[in-house]
Design a binder for these strands. Structure first.
Lengths: 147, 147
DNA sequence: GGCCAAATGCAAGTCAGTGGCATTTAGGAT
DNA sequence: ATCCTAAATGCCACTGACTTGCATTTGGCC
């Protein structure tokens, strides 16, 4: 039988036409294992000590441009990154999904299961001349841990 | 006949129990005249020269806490403020409304006319234990000027 | 192995926003 | 009208996220 489509950081990078370097492999690995979107300090903490923050910032910018990852903001002023942009493993996962922000502890979660209703943009009645690319939906509230 | 309910910065501040100071009156005035959410540098530019930025930051934090204004983020890393939080002139306007961000020029607009469907949060099927306070909806795209 | 654009690492800079503290002031009490 | 005090201001320095410049290293192709 054919290979079961491993989808390693390595293969993802090659498929996107990016060079395979330690930092890139590391960042992709961290993000694919993370349960929720995390910020740069958190990513850095899971990478080998001594990893340069600037390189990680540049790596994440590259990934975002290439749509290997997507980013969200919580209430604070930093970006949180999560694996799975448009070029994610399964094309089915390639849509924008809603997020949940806990305003108590600041954590952000992807509501990957949910889909933003296609009717939403329509129902808001945006004026003519506006070209809507996508809708961003962030639910604010309190998570079970802070409940 | 009775006074036609002027709703000046002065009256708004008094009604909220805040002291009436030049900076506060100025900030409220600027925001109430602004057509779209603007950031601190833009607010500062419309205030008398020499106005202290720190004071404006603190003023905006106070206003946000008291819900005299609301704030949104565009693609950049700064907050944009707009008049009209929960304690706005008309109570009818007191809901959270969707926003539009032009990813080309960075401007943000309030879609004040539109209402976020009450069914939205429900339809996303948030897990038990999550207490949703409100939903944030931001449409991304290109505005008529950049179209 | 050798080449070279791409990626990295380090220093330094930018920019939004905050904290500390002495001074001023709004506005109720007198 | 004057006094008093907590609240607000102004100024300084600071934090933290992110960027820019540049010299050095390296992935990947020949």
């Amino acid at each position: 039988m054919p290979k079961p489509a491993p989808t390693t950081p390595d293969s993802t990078l090659k498929a996107t036409g990016l060079r395979v370097t330690p930092v890139r492999v590391g960042v992709l690995g961290v993000l694919s294992k993370a349960a929720a979107p995390i910020d740069v300090p958190a990513i850095l903490a899971k990478l080998p000590p001594g990893t340069d923050a600037v390189t990680v910032y540049r790596t994440l910018n590259t990934f975002t441009r290439k749509k290997l990852v997507h980013r969200v903001r919580g209430e604070d002023r930093s970006w949180r990154y999560a694996a799975g942009g448009a070029a994610a493993e399964t094309e089915r996962h390639a849509h924008r999904h809603p997020h949940f922000v806990c305003d108590a502890c600041g954590t952000v979660e992807c509501l990957s299961g949910a889909e933003i209703p296609r009717t939403l943009v329509r129902s808001l009645g945006v004026g003519a001349g506006y070209g809507v690319t996508y809708a961003e939906v962030v639910l604010h509230g309190v998570c079970p841990r802070c409940g």
